[in-house]
Nucleic acid binder design. Structure first.
Lengths: 112, 112
DNA sequence: TATACATACCTTGAATGATCAGGTATAGTG
DNA sequence: CACTATACCTGATCATTCAAGGTATGTATA
């Protein structure tokens, strides 16, 4: 059974989480579905990815958590701190640089 | 000491290697420098990344190796097989999908 | 009532990929 | 002769991600 698919990118989950939360506060389970929607199903992050990322970012001071009971169930809403926004800026810039790098490599090789 | 930087992307080294070799045959050491140049220093893959990728792709039948002695030193030139081109197509398409997904997520969150 | 599904949180174990840090050897330069 | 660049390679380590579970509540349905 343990047939783990190869991971396609590193650091991107964190970037996506930060970006989505910078729009509005959300809870974990919501983020799982949001990522799929926003990326048009191109990227699908399971709960096993989202929750650890959330906890890591909170511990790093990039997010704050707020527990809210809704319909009997408890939701943990996360929002981005100023420190989180800096981190978002940095990651976003890194992504731009790297993806531009790849694209230029693909482009140069393509126009044969 | 063992302070390994976080990897930023998975599968991208393989994609870049395949793409560069689809232009013209190259040897490992050359690829190390080429990747840096082509991506405008945005991506830098060490020999410890390139050589294992090369060997893996050769074993998978995506590349063929040809030893050439040049100036006394031996170079191993790699070229892409038809199977390797298929793999390149697939990886390239995956990259496009994923990077478009990330970009759209970043975009949507941006136009607040 | 039962049973099934969606919601909502979480963790653990294993697979994978990438990095660093080495190691070998030849050629050329000061 | 030492040093740097070229050119190949591997092993240990580490982080990231994934699949697969586990817990619990609410709601629909048969």
């Amino acid at each position: 059974m343990g047939k783990t698919n190869p991971p396609f990118m590193t650091g991107v989950p964190e970037l996506l989480v930060l970006r989505l939360l910078s729009q509005r506060e959300m809870y974990g389970y919501e983020l799982v579905k949001s990522v799929r929607m926003v990326t048009s199903e191109a990227i699908s992050l399971g709960e096993g990815v989202i929750y650890p990322v959330l906890h890591g970012l909170e511990k790093a001071g990039a997010l704050t958590a707020k527990r809210k009971p809704v319909n009997g169930r408890t939701r943990v809403y996360y929002s981005v701190t100023p420190l989180g926004r800096e981190r978002l800026e940095r990651l976003s810039g890194e992504w731009d640089r790297v993806s531009a790098g790849v694209d230029s490599a693909l482009g140069e090789a393509g126009h044969v």
